[in-house]
Design a protein around this nucleic acid. Structure first.
Lengths: 215, 215
DNA sequence: GTCTATATCCAGATAGAC
DNA sequence: GTCTATCTGGATATAGAC
């Protein structure tokens, strides 16, 4: 096996172990065994256990843009996604959210890294900041940008795109958290997700139709 | 020092350490040092390290009802809190949420236990279920009950109290998560909280006033 | 109940042969 | 690059004196 292949395999197996047990509970012996080598051989690829963890963080952060590009989301510049949201139907919006939701849960590296970060978020201020940036702020900023444009164009009604983004995004984050802990509840969470998207859609689009139904 | 005092001190100091470093990173020697005894003396109070963790979980779960009662929240039966929400003003609602928010962050045992659970949530299916029950479901159920009553009484407009509860609660949970990781961002999160409550309040109460302002 | 001393084990990491 | 052998330190836990 090539040198770089082994190095990558160490990263993969380490992430797999770290994401379920946490950094401290995993021994270098365990990692080595999962990779198929003996513990001392690990030190030909990394200077120590902490270096493996650091490399995982660094490389996953780097690959973030690549992966998110695959599902047609570009957090960097939300503007190019605004047309997707304009004039979208309720069902199409849910389908879009469902796609991102399931991708986040089932993509192994994405999901494992998120769970590892959840466990290790208090390990250092840097990790804490990374967690908030990646799993809260960027998602909020992205959606706030879209909502800001939709408000300006009169597509939806509201005065606060940031608060609107929080209201739209936070339930999704909460449901992802539930599924990370209890994957067996995914279908239940998908239903809640659909109800959420439905309610949100109806609230931001001119509510007169819905109120008309009630009265 | 009395026997029970020492036992309680072990629980307190252990929680303090577990909540920042996680179970595996804390040694019984560290705990003993924090308590002011030597490691072997711990074994007069608990059969082992795991037993300390278990006792923390058990006793904190038991004290949950007591603590929440102090801030006038009774998750068990939401009905008695419905009058508090009826005809409430926007400012009063925020003040109420702010109070709970800050209590959750600054009450030491509450906050530490939550952070410990965040770190250890993947340790077992039982802990995962406890986390979801305590930090998601109970809060959602409580608010869904209130919203259901408010919808029935015509106080607010909506058709889905569960989705409404998710929309109302999830941003609060997200912001608590941010503050757990980065306590220095509390004031920033309080502002986001206020904006959220404000937007939510205006959305659920008949929106004609707000739409009138915009046109 | 607390201590010292100790047993046992396993962790991360290194040396050096192949 | 991989291995075996080994070092060193620290972990949980126990024995038994005070």
């Amino acid at each position: 096996m090539k040198q770089e292949d082994t190095k990558q395999k160490i990263l993969d197996k380490s992430l797999e172990l770290f994401s379920t047990q946490g950094y401290d509970s995993v021994s270098v012996g365990e990692i080595a065994k999962a990779v198929g080598i003996k513990a001392p051989s690990l030190y030909n690829h990394f200077p120590g256990k902490q270096a493996i963890f650091d490399a995982i963080v660094e490389s996953t952060v780097a690959q973030y843009e690549v992966d998110t590009g695959k599902i047609d989301i570009h957090v960097q510049n939300a503007k190019q996604d605004i047309p997707v949201f304009t004039e979208i139907t309720e069902d199409a919006l849910f389908e879009k959210v469902r796609q991102i939701f399931e991708y986040s849960l089932h993509n192994e590296s994405i999901s494992r890294f998120r769970r590892m970060m959840t466990i290790e978020q208090f390990r250092s201020p840097e990790l804490a900041a990374l967690y908030t940036r990646r799993y809260v702020e960027r998602i909020l900023d992205y959606h706030a940008g879209i909502f800001r444009a939709l408000i300006a164009s009169g597509e939806i009604r509201s005065e606060d795109p940031d608060a609107l983004a929080m209201m739209y995004v936070a339930p999704v984050l909460t449901l992802i958290g539930v599924c990370d802990r209890q994957p067996e509840r995914e279908s239940e969470c998908l239903e809640k997700l659909q109800k959420h998207v439905r309610l949100f859609f109806r609230m931001v689009h001119d509510g007169s139709r819905q109120r008309g139904e009630k009265q």
